[in-house]
């Protein structure tokens, strides 16, 4: 489970950044009291336009960024108290996840298995299962730099799932990927849900959200505008389709 309560994030700005953004304040608040909960066995989607605060929220959950205030609990562990233990329960994947191009998939996956405290045998067993599932045996010993985008994404998936995390965070996982590679990710999210894992993913594509999510959070300008089940979202729709409804909610809440 992921429990996010009153999450705030403020970035301090230098003079150059102040000029670029066009603000006079020395800090920029990008998240305002964001709260939501992601349940095990369900997929929570954080939907919002570009710059809404999706990535910042997910980066705080993944412990890459620290919250200015508020709390996040992952699997019952407060991130402020034991971030390492929380990370051990988590897998993090983005559409632009970087890989070590000079390593082979085997070396990369083993590295992250080791960092997650797994022994060699467990790594081999998990790796073998994931390789079979994703059809990776043929290129497991080739340098990652020589692999296709689809193959690289499979390596990213294996790296994310090697320690069998109970919580999986996907930050715009299909962004920039071709249709076939994106389909792999969609299947992965479904598999995670079927296995009872807690899944959160961010997106700005309504059709993707419609396809996958059980619970929905719409975020805009660092504020949660909607936080409920997908079912309830559909029930209270004031427009004809999901995309229209999303645009309607966002435009109604444009900052002054």
């Amino acid at each position: 489970m992921i429990e996010v309560s009153n999450l705030c994030k403020e970035f301090s700005l230098n003079k150059k950044q102040m000029q670029e953004i066009g603000v006079k304040e020395k800090s920029l608040k990008v998240l305002h009291d964001v709260s939501f909960t992601c349940q095990p066995g369900r997929v929570y989607s954080l939907l919002g336009p570009n710059g809404a605060g999706k990535t910042t929220t997910l980066r705080i959950i993944a412990t890459i960024l620290r919250a200015t205030s508020g709390t996040v609990k992952v699997g019952g562990i407060n991130l402020n108290e034991d971030p390492s233990a929380a990370r051990a329960k988590m897998g993090f994947l983005t559409g632009t996840t970087g890989l070590y191009e000079r390593l082979t998939p085997n070396e990369m996956v083993k590295y992250f298995g080791k960092l997650n405290g797994m022994d060699d045998k467990l790594i081999e067993d998990r790796k073998d299962r994931l390789y079979s599932l994703l059809g990776m045996h043929d290129f497991a010993n080739k340098r990652i730099g020589k692999l296709s985008t689809g193959m690289k994404q499979k390596v990213s998936i294996t790296r994310t799932m090697i320690h069998d995390p109970e919580v999986v965070v996907f930050d715009e996982p299909t962004s920039g990927l071709d249709v076939i590679t994106a389909k792999n990710i969609i299947e992965l999210i479904r598999d995670c849900k079927d296995q009872g894992k807690t899944v959160i993913f961010s997106s700005h594509i309504m059709s993707e959200v419609d396809l996958l999510c059980d619970d929905l959070g719409i975020i805009h300008d660092g504020r949660i505008l909607f936080n409920d089940t997908m079912e309830n979202f559909r029930k209270q729709m004031q427009t004809e389709n999901l995309t229209e409804e999303f645009i309607h909610i966002v435009t109604q809440n444009e900052p002054v």
Partner: peptide
């Protein structure tokens, strides 16, 4: 290099300090 290749984020999500 890790920042440029975007592997730093991946590494920071591993359970190491």
């Amino acid at each position: 290099g890790e920042k440029e290749r975007r592997t730093m984020e991946t590494l920071l999500t591993a359970p190491v300090s």
